[in-house]
């Protein structure tokens, strides 16, 4: 009895249930994802990857999805950077209220937000095409871009800006040579936070374009849905590799 008490008294032991849960629901499922991509009823096979790389249709969708995700990310930077810049500058606005207003929509269910965008486009009689898709995704993920940039800008050492000004730099040069490089870590994490969800999204694109535009995520979901588990797993693995590469490269840039 005493020994049992002693065992549970060691605080390390308190993490064991968590470790077990993570092993069963995080590590093993990811291993299974790899397993199902390469092994089916007939044993080891590469045919699911051959199927993907062999069909121009799925390759096109894949490249198209990366393209849409990139466009969304770029638009988010172009729209979000000035917003974050103005918010962080105390002479322009009341930053706390603004920051709150920009993250408030994040607390609303993503699907409801997306449907609200559809409603807006219907209301204005705009077509539900790629434009709508990019608008909707920017609308859904813009706060993820604004927030990290705003954070780095706010923590930035303002004496550097003063110094640049004192040394005679024009406003544009102050921004280009001082502020922008200092805010790059925020931009990088913004890119990660926007690019990763947009590349894997499926419901948003279906709802925004009435299923006219198919993204890679939708293809994965459809295959899983109709029971093509092996092919779905292989596609998921490809997506996972892209995500891994992005976060790896992003992390590299971050450490510079």
């Amino acid at each position: 009895m005493n020994r049992i008490m002693e065992f549970f008294g060691r605080r390390k032991v308190w993490a064991f249930p968590y470790v077990a849960v993570m092993a069963v629901f995080v590590v093993i499922p990811l291993l299974l994802l790899g397993w199902y991509s390469f092994v089916d009823e007939e044993g080891f096979t590469l045919k699911y990857f051959e199927k993907f790389f062999g069909s121009t249709d799925s390759l096109n969708t894949f490249i198209y999805s990366i393209g849409i995700a990139m466009i969304t990310t770029v638009v988010c930077i172009l729209v979000g950077y000035p917003a974050a810049y103005f918010m962080a500058d105390k002479q322009f606005s009341t930053p706390k209220v603004m920051a709150l207003l920009f993250i408030l929509p994040m607390w609303i269910n993503l699907l409801l937000r997306t449907l609200a965008t559809v409603a807006l486009f219907d209301f204005l009689h705009l077509p539900l095409d790629e434009g709508a898709l990019v608008f909707g995704m920017v609308y859904d993920f813009l706060p993820f871009m604004i927030y990290p940039i705003y954070n780095t800008l706010q923590k930035m050492d303002h004496s550097l800006v003063e110094a640049a000004k004192d040394l005679g730099a024009k406003p544009f040069r102050v921004f280009w040579d001082v502020v922008l490089p200092l805010s790059m870590p925020g931009v990088y994490s913004g890119i990660l936070m926007v690019f990763m969800p947009t590349i894997s999204t499926f419901a948003i694109s279906e709802l925004l374009t009435m299923n006219n535009v198919k993204l890679f995520g939708s293809i994965i979901q459809e295959n899983i849905n109709v029971g093509l588990i092996n092919y779905g797993s292989a596609l998921s693995l490809i997506l996972l590799i892209i995500i891994g590469l992005t976060s790896f490269l992003g992390g590299e840039d971050d450490s510079k």
Partner: peptide
Amino acid sequence: FVNSVPIINPDIITGISIFLL
């Protein structure tokens, strides 16, 4: 590291991998 996996993973991957389990 394992703790950060579900945070970084897109939800579709989390969903599918647990479904496979």
